[in-house]
Design a protein around this nucleic acid. Structure first.
Lengths: 187, 187
DNA sequence: CGTAATCTACCTATCAGTAGATAGATAAAT
DNA sequence: ATTTATCTATCTACTGATAGGTAGATTACG
């Protein structure tokens, strides 16, 4: 009996994130999580009453961590290429060596059939990352003769390229593909 | 008793495609398909012995239809912007007004947990579309002073941008987003 | 031609396994 | 003594899959 609350809850979140990124939301069960962590499925319900609750919390944690790694846009890189490089680097390390999808990318792909609060959290990832990009880019020389709309479109297209790149890298079993895509980001 | 083989099989494929695009592979069951088509689940097994078999056939059909719509690259548009426009248009109509994902996009996102033959078919979509793009672009003025590698990278990044754009359009419930992304394709 | 055999396209019924979820017991920590 | 963290046990619903049956259409044959 380990009887270590924080540890178990964290382990469940970790494993849930990893399994959702691998198999999608519908490809993960309470029993998978329980057996992976070494408890019974009822104990998973103890921490996360419903699957929706678990999914939303995993997504929120992922997004918080992602934005934390990006840092404060007011205190970040000041050239467009460095900003893009930072975002790109985060996606590359998220994909990892074993081709893990972006959690919110796979949730977004499945979103039409997911519980409301999970979709809300997935949406929030894109809102927040795209806001980080927009704010960061706005401070650069590159943005001087560009409209707010152009900057937002650039942020969104960078995100789209990276998410799509992950998908293709994954199905091709070729994590290096995402690296290949980097030159397409800087312009 | 309708007793109309071709019709039933086609209806199953149509519905399976639509449901997978909405909910993902793991979000579709034989019973969903059966009740939607108006038969029993055992009849779905009659046409498609296993779910893997069904998934692979749905993916193959989708890819064939997609490439057919793209047409013969030897007999298609000869400018880079028209080529890009054609591909973009197909993705826009695939997304539709109700935000349906690209079938092979969602399968690729889930691919780590899917049966082998389904993954093979999903991969084939990207191989074939990217080959269409590469062949098409190679015939253009734009390609004159570019290497094979550069052209392939361009094809892949266009595909990535469109797949990622669909994902984001979908989670934002904003099909117009994909249209916004078009200028980012032409360069 | 007529009829027997086979095939097609479904059906009912059922299986073992798994899904998410809940109730209630228990032991340890506070 | 209460709260916390787990367990056992169980529920109903659903999963993919299979066995075996049947009405009607098609084909083979004498």
């Amino acid at each position: 009996m380990s009887r270590n609350a924080a540890e178990t809850e964290g382990k469940i979140l970790d494993l849930a994130e990893s399994l959702i990124r691998k198999n999608g939301y519908n490809g993960v069960s309470f029993r998978d999580l329980a057996s992976g962590v070494g408890v019974k499925s009822s104990s998973v319900h103890y921490y996360f009453p419903t699957k929706e609750d678990l999914g939303a919390k995993v997504a929120r944690r992922y997004t918080d961590r992602f934005l934390n790694a990006l840092g404060d846009p007011q205190d970040g890189p000041v050239t467009a290429s460095e900003i893009v490089k930072k975002l790109h680097g985060l996606f590359v390390s998220a994909l990892g060596s074993d081709g893990q999808m972006c959690l919110c990318g796979i949730l977004a792909a499945e979103s039409a059939g997911l519980p409301e609060s999970v979709v809300t959290e997935a949406k929030s990832f894109f809102d927040r990352v795209s806001e980080w990009m927009t704010l960061s880019l706005s401070r650069t020389e590159w943005a001087r003769n560009r409209s707010e709309e152009e900057i937002k479109a650039e942020a969104l297209s960078a995100l789209a390229l990276l998410e799509g790149g992950m998908i293709i890298a994954r199905v091709r079993n070729d994590p290096a593909l995402l690296t290949t895509l980097r030159p397409q980001l800087a312009r």
